[in-house]
Amino acid sequence: MSEEEQQITLVDEHGNEELYTVLFTFDSEDYGKSYMFLYPADAENDDEVDIQAYSYVPDADGNADEGQLNEIESEDEWKMVEEVLNTFLGEDDAE
């Protein structure tokens, strides 16, 4: 793992811990939130990777890995997040 890669541990509703790698983070002025995209750390070279998105509140030092993750609930917010991810991945569906 390079120094630039951030990893975060998520705990599911059953108390199981899973390590994720942060794909990237971004801020939205429209929603006044920060967002993070994560994928399972053990899915390094898989063709299809399950990418998860969350809004987050960084800790007092501005670190995403120690802050609070929140589910994205609004449909409009999901659309914006998906557009950002598609742009990042280079998949422009608006052709």
Score class of each variant (00 low, 15 high):
residue 1 M to F: 13
residue 2 S to M: 06
residue 3 E to F: 11
residue 5 E to S: 13
residue 8 I to Y: 02
residue 9 T to S: 03
residue 9 T to Q: 02
residue 11 V to D: 02
residue 11 V to T: 10
residue 12 D to L: 06
residue 12 D to W: 02
residue 13 E to H: 12
residue 13 E to S: 15
residue 14 H to A: 10
residue 19 L to Q: 04
residue 19 L to C: 08
residue 22 V to C: 07
residue 23 L to S: 02
residue 24 F to M: 10
residue 25 T to I: 05
residue 28 S to Q: 05
residue 28 S to T: 01
residue 29 E to V: 15
residue 29 E to F: 12
residue 29 E to M: 11
residue 30 D to C: 02
residue 30 D to Y: 10
residue 31 Y to I: 03
residue 35 Y to D: 03
residue 35 Y to F: 08
residue 36 M to T: 09
residue 38 L to W: 06
residue 39 Y to R: 08
residue 40 P to N: 05
residue 40 P to A: 00
residue 45 N to M: 14
residue 46 D to P: 03
residue 49 V to C: 13
residue 49 V to W: 05
residue 51 I to W: 04
residue 52 Q to K: 14
residue 54 Y to P: 03
residue 56 Y to K: 01
residue 57 V to M: 14
residue 60 A to K: 14
residue 60 A to L: 13
residue 63 N to E: 10
residue 64 A to D: 12
residue 64 A to L: 13
residue 66 E to C: 12
residue 68 Q to Y: 09
residue 69 L to C: 05
residue 71 E to D: 03
residue 71 E to F: 01
residue 73 E to Y: 00
residue 74 S to E: 13
residue 74 S to F: 11
residue 77 E to R: 00
residue 77 E to N: 00
residue 78 W to Q: 15
residue 78 W to K: 15
residue 80 M to N: 15
residue 80 M to P: 09
residue 80 M to Y: 15
residue 81 V to C: 00
residue 82 E to M: 11
residue 84 V to Q: 12
residue 84 V to L: 07
residue 85 L to D: 05
residue 85 L to A: 03
residue 88 F to R: 07
residue 90 G to N: 04
residue 90 G to P: 00
residue 92 D to T: 06
residue 95 E to M: 12
residue 95 E to V: 15
